[in-house]
Design a protein around this nucleic acid. Structure first.
Lengths: 128, 128
DNA sequence: TCAGTAATAAGAACCGTTACTGATTTACGA
DNA sequence: TCGTAAATCAGTAACGGTTCTTATTACTGA
């Protein structure tokens, strides 16, 4: 019997309504506009729950903060090393390429994460 | 003019002499056997330096700890979600596949990181 | 030897995240 | 619409990996 929670729904809605691949902190500030009494712990707790339920995925850690994605479809990401933006970058099909490799080392891959690093469109050409 | 440092050399040697893709903590305990007065801060500082110099790369964050690799050649990794082991998994050739994607979104990738997750050979079939 | 500079040890500070506790909200049957 | 139990939450303390600070030490060239 899964109980519903307005705050949990709000957290999930905000995660799914953005393509910015947000951090917990960002989600927290956004939910706070709707539920000013929300706690950062609630955001973390529900993000962990969504991950366990497979409703969201983690993109990776950028500048020490974990970034999440409400889009669980098979796709990879581009991380700007200058401004920290995380951008969708299409769907890979690399698993087949590596099937023999994993047979050799006896590993059973369940998922993978392909991340490119570089400068995003806005940061290309910037000085510092 | 790069100055000589026995401890820095020891840190680098240990990183390069293992294929375990260690954490800073692991490197610290290893260097401590040679230099008992080594400081954890020194390990972190020199790891950061090696990264800047391009002498090592970071594999990713496993269980909250950053894992590094002295092998800077083009290859990807397998992370065991059960025991946390990081294993080399051959060389990818995915950049070409994505060249058009990056033209579309205007990003200039410099490097990438492909990580597979699952159970390693030893952990396949284990219960908990 | 000496001055100047880089590297270091020790530990405090930092910061994202997690755990805990008591209060509040939710689902659901009466 | 109530009452009740379980789920959820706010607030906050604690945790742990990493970074920063400061005093000290080691190295280099003169």
């Amino acid at each position: 019997m899964e109980k519903h929670s307005k705050k949990r729904d709000a957290i999930y809605d905000i995660i799914c309504s953005t393509k910015s691949h947000p951090s917990a902190e960002w989600v927290y500030t956004q939910v706070k506009e709707i539920h000013p009494d929300i706690s950062l712990g609630t955001v973390y707790r529900n993000i962990a729950r969504f991950k366990e339920e497979g409703k969201i995925i983690t993109v990776g850690v950028v500048n020490g903060q974990e970034r999440i994605d409400g889009d669980t479809s098979d796709h990879c990401h581009f991380v700007c090393t200058h401004c920290g933006a995380v951008i969708d970058a299409g769907a890979p099909d690399v698993t087949d390429t590596y099937s023999q490799v994993f047979k050799d080392i006896g590993c059973t891959p369940e998922r993978h994460n392909l991340v490119f690093y570089g400068r995003c469109h806005d940061c290309t050409g910037k000085r510092s």
